[in-house]
Design a protein around this nucleic acid. Structure first.
Lengths: 119, 119
DNA sequence: TGATTACATCGATAATTGTCTATGTCCGAT
DNA sequence: ATCGGACATAGACAATTATCGATGTAATCA
């Protein structure tokens, strides 16, 4: 049995929609997709995502990420939370450290939605 | 001779960058890409873009767009301006009407940046 | 010329958000 | 049991933004 709509993260919602250019988005579709786009609409979060994605083993711990920015630790934590909540980053705690990993399918679906490329 | 960097719209800047997942974005790259993502990070603008893109002849006049929303005309005008300024929508005035048209390449480059699909 | 229609701009306001400091929580080590 | 380090949460504040009504501008028509 599939998840109910209410449980879907924004990225999962995106995966089911036609490319933007094929037909007009409904009000509800737009309302569900926008949070995902918003999550990426910040230079710090764009960098965070790209750093995590291109990191060795495909994951990075928060300590590495903190060092890459001139921002406080809570600020980075906040941005990671935003990316995690929309489903773009997965998190896993191992010991004292927390590792973030890209949800590659999510990003790909997102790109397909915008560019009209069918996976 | 190509345009200098300073004249490029955000979408044109995007077109030259590696996919997000290949290597970390620099601070400056992220700062230039973010405004483009921000332009799409609103449900009204997502719908505006999809309506224009899927409209007959690939263009729509503002009067059509106003009718599609329960928002004031200045508000729609504002959102169209945002999309135009980042290069996602082209505009052309014909008589009394203003027509907006999708910059398809811009959206495709954007999708490729996110999804890692090479054009 | 004057009126009307289509769209943009201006100025104000309420809501959102990025950032900080301070504090809390969980885990491993001594 | 206690301490210290890694990360999250809470609360506050400043900056951004989505929206509106009022007004400006440009083109058509009578």
């Amino acid at each position: 049995m599939s998840k109910s709509l209410i449980e879907l993260t924004p990225v999962e919602t995106v995966a089911c929609c036609s490319p933007l250019t094929k037909e007009p988005l409904s009000h509800d579709q737009a309302e569900r997709i926008a949070p995902l786009v918003k999550a990426l609409a910040d230079p710090v979060r764009l960098r965070l995502l790209s750093i995590v994605a291109s990191h060795a083993d495909g994951e990075a711990c928060v300590c590495d990420l903190n060092d890459a920015f001139d921002l406080s630790q809570p600020t980075i934590s906040h941005h990671l939370k935003v990316l995690h909540e929309v489903g773009l980053l997965d998190r896993e705690k191992r010991g004292v450290w927390v590792y973030y990993r890209l949800n590659a399918g999510a990003l790909r679906d997102f790109g397909a939605l915008l560019g009209g490329v069918v996976g």
